[in-house]
Design a binder for these strands. Structure first.
Lengths: 134, 134, 134, 134
DNA sequence: GTGGTCTAGACCACA
DNA sequence: GTGGTCTAGACCACA
């Protein structure tokens, strides 16, 4: 019998770590100016090869999320809009995956809207402080 | 430094396999009346312990998706609405997770709708054969 | 000569324990909201493996009779109709087994009724407090 | 914590074996005139002490179900009514236990009758060949 | 063979 | 601590 490989959803490890670090910034547990763990520390923490960790930091630097100071290390960028930008791009990524999954199940736009409205109706997903006046 | 375990998203393996099998039924690669792989075969295929595979099949049986005949094997139920029911419940699960993720990012209902509409507009997510006439 | 295994009546241990716990709830020695013994304590008390005890508690949870709070323990559900429901389902189970046994002995409906009436007449099986006034 | 002993329903082993042998006679797998296994064989088969097996055969002899011929062994009695008598006494025993269990659950005579009628109605428990004329 | 039960023992997340 | 998951491996009944 054929061996079925399980898909962790297939995302390469280095991108999973990238996302994990972005989540840490969005949640505020990592802030502008904070020093990142060194390649060696990060590799140990995530149990990956140092090369993989290097790739992670390189990708984050390429996206302008962190920057390096030679001989010192990597630091989180001090851009005041960093969190907002990360939030937006994560939201877009999550939404794209959501629509891809529903499409794979054979649903169309109308059914997607219906599902979203039903779920929105069930719980209060309104962001606090943005509700209309009483 | 603490070791961070990477997150397969944390879902237990047995539930991932359960979902995988449901997907096979939704996609039609597994049909009503089909014999499931035996506990031992499935365990080998998914590279898990037979106990874990048994748990998977037990869970599917509990949900009425498959049934077992002792000494013979497990079979997919022949309920004509099985695929429709699975599709619905999977869609609901995916939608709930989607809204939970966006809420965690701090988005409200209006922003969710906007994201969905933008993504729906971007690509053609209409189910083939369900579009209105021109 | 073949070794005959004696029959605990063949019921798996985990189901015997499940029934035992239901009896404790029906009899009132276990009440809504009560904390159940932990998996490890129960395993020791019933002299079974923790896995088996976990299966017992899992089955009771699946039936809605108890619920678990991670890191805290299992508790008896606080459903006001719990005892009545358990009593009914146990009575039905006992009755089904009774009729199956008599049928296996070759008895028909008329003979079953006769046996029941004879036995009811012999002893006082009337529930206390439900008899008519003198 | 106190150790809970499980009850196999408490019946002594020798009586369980006695019942088992009676069932074999009722079912016809043991017939009038058949030779019983020797004490030593029976002890091995049921995995009990020879003393226990001796007690079993003694009890069956006392009830007139088997008889012994010195130096030869035990044989099933050739009484033409043996099966009918065994059937009746087993039916009475089963019925008594049934009523005891329902009484323990707090049910009265009316509820017992209702349960029996409901269960009799559900399946066809009529003995074949005893149904009324068409 | 196939499913079903059980023990032994490890490791994890959560509180 | 407590529940939850998983592996390893044994033994059983049923067909």
């Amino acid at each position: 019998m054929r061996h079925i490989r399980f898909d962790d959803d297939g995302t390469p490890i280095y991108l999973q770590i990238v996302r994990n670090i972005k989540a840490a910034i969005i949640s505020g547990s990592l802030r502008g100016g904070d020093k990142m763990p060194s390649v060696r520390e990060g590799a140990e923490a995530y149990r990956v090869n140092p090369n993989t960790m290097h790739r992670v930091l390189g990708e984050l630097e390429r996206e302008g999320i962190i920057f390096s100071t030679r001989g010192v290390g990597f630091f989180v960028a001090e851009d005041p809009h960093l969190v907002a930008h990360l939030r937006e791009s994560e939201a877009a990524r999550v939404t794209d995956r959501f629509l891809a999954e529903l499409t794979a199940l054979g649903l169309g736009a109308a059914e997607v809207r219906e599902l979203v409205e039903t779920s929105l109706g069930g719980a209060n997903h309104e962001h606090p402080g943005r509700r209309g006046r009483p």
